[in-house]
Design a protein around this nucleic acid. Sequence first.
DNA 1: AAGGTAGCTGCACAAATGTGACAAGCGCGG
DNA 2: CCGCGCTTGTCACATTTGTGCAGCTACCTT
Lengths: 327, 327
Amino acid sequence: MSRNKLTAAVPSPVAEDADDFDAKTAARVCWHYFKEGQTQEEVARRLGFTRKRINRIIAQALSSGLVQITIDSQIGACAELESRLIAQYRLRRAIVVPSPAPDLDVRTVVGAAAGQYISDQLGPSETLGISWGGTIHAAAQNLRRRHGGNTVVSLVGGLAMSGPINPYDNAAMMARALGATCRYVTTPMIADSRELRDALVRSTHVAAALAAVRSVNRALLSAVDLTNRSRALEYGVITRDTLRSLRTAGAVGDIAGHYLNASGSLVSHPLVDRVISVDLTSLRAVGELVLAAGGAHKAAIIRAGILARLCHVLITDEAAAEALLAF
Amino acid sequence: MSRNKLTAAVPSPVAEDADDFDAKTAARVCWHYFKEGQTQEEVARRLGFTRKRINRIIAQALSSGLVQITIDSQIGACAELESRLIAQYRLRRAIVVPSPAPDLDVRTVVGAAAGQYISDQLGPSETLGISWGGTIHAAAQNLRRRHGGNTVVSLVGGLAMSGPINPYDNAAMMARALGATCRYVTTPMIADSRELRDALVRSTHVAAALAAVRSVNRALLSAVDLTNRSRALEYGVITRDTLRSLRTAGAVGDIAGHYLNASGSLVSHPLVDRVISVDLTSLRAVGELVLAAGGAHKAAIIRAGILARLCHVLITDEAAAEALLAF
DNA sequence: AAGGTAGCTGCACAAATGTGACAAGCGCGG
DNA sequence: CCGCGCTTGTCACATTTGTGCAGCTACCTT
């Protein structure tokens, strides 16, 4: 008797996504558990599942973002840091979250705050631009689900390698969570040569994709640092040699493909002419630029981003906030 | 050494509400617990509290609505009932939640769904009209916190008795959760005589308060039934005799003070001339009327409300939904 | 100043939850 | 047709969480 196939046996009238298999059941399970406050065992009995299954469904619903936990953010736990940041850097707003325990990834917690902020702020038909990275990934996991109305625009080219942290996956996750349509830049993030870059940028599809930034109301940006802790190496964006030469050229990191020095100016370096992404001027024209990045090692590039006028709203953690205030 | 007084010792620069005592600490605790996934004991150690204290703070944050749990609602667990309701009653939308176990109050779960719906839909500067009752109370507890921009308008007069279920408290909770300003109707819900009602309604303040409905973009209404299970008695709105005579007059319940019969027309009864609330025509002019009510015993008045054109969006539970579909 | 209330701590225990090992069932491709 | 790999069920166990009790302190009321 395939009891547990019952839900799958009822085909949903709407287009069903890849992970819809469970979604309806999961929603019900979570409802009983979180909203009614029943115990996992009670839910299991009521729905005819094993407790373990319920347990797994809940865990999955939590991690997949089907259920979101929202903490009142205005009563920020780190309100003082926030107001000092706003004052010192003339920000529209700052959100500072506690730095996590050392064995946790800063990006997940900063991303969580970013996702919550975006969910709170994004209007029903706004277009959201995004860069890429672990923070963006975490933000996508922390969006409250929507269904239509929004558009997600990826602001940078792709990475050939796989893994869950890459622009296409970031954009896809984000779009999926918002039920949004999505625009991708169908080129590598970094072309092999300046000539190739120019040719690509001129080609119809790519030009159109990059031009999509004009319709962006709000952009969620992250910051890539060039310290030894940089993940850029790990994700294969650049080689260690390139990293070193970028540092020699004065770069402290990049924001959406724009390599900046400590005072927020673009650096001169062969690499920068090979990067494919939305140009700085267009980016600055976006109504609200939200920069989400945390960890003390990112303080320099965050500061550079602010000075480069790429940050209206800063979402970061205590460690980076303190480093920023100490400049 | 009063460690745990530290937070209270730092006066907040912003106006601090009655329950601010803990809010900042609570936000931080919840952040560590829910977002970072630390155990209560770890949080306790980290912040220098007892585990028990953490436990209580979390429980309180949960019940006070400082932290909200949101389940993707579009993937409704009861999607089929929803679409049948929409079809049969020509609704704009229907949300059906599973009926809770018999020892739980339907109103809390329907209210939870209503709160989530309002949080999802309410624009940043909209004005929300509300009626009153247990469902509204629960809805208020399930709003995601906001800070300014909205206005809450109570659509009915007050009850003299205390207790947490009364129009003023409902409106105040709702407004507090949204950081909204609030308008009250400063009269009893039911005046002693028709003459008194008329005089009150004509008086400047009351007239202005009732006229505030014109700026309402969206209203959250609940339904009061006149079955034996009705809470109207318990809250002292009407006496048992009045209830009986209302039933004799054909009434099946009331919505925002309007007593309706089974087909959704106003009934004739001495009481209806003594009720102080926003008139039907003005109510019907509101852009979106959300009716939140659950339990099989409310089916009749829900149906009456729909027929009376007081419901664009219905939020209810399985039991009521099935009863409605069986009509 | 006395008395009472509320909240805190520390301890202890029961209930609930997360997890691992292993067997059973199912779909899929060779 | 068979076995492989994946998911799910079963059982068992460690951890985490909720809660009650006794005693204490701080604060508020009278």
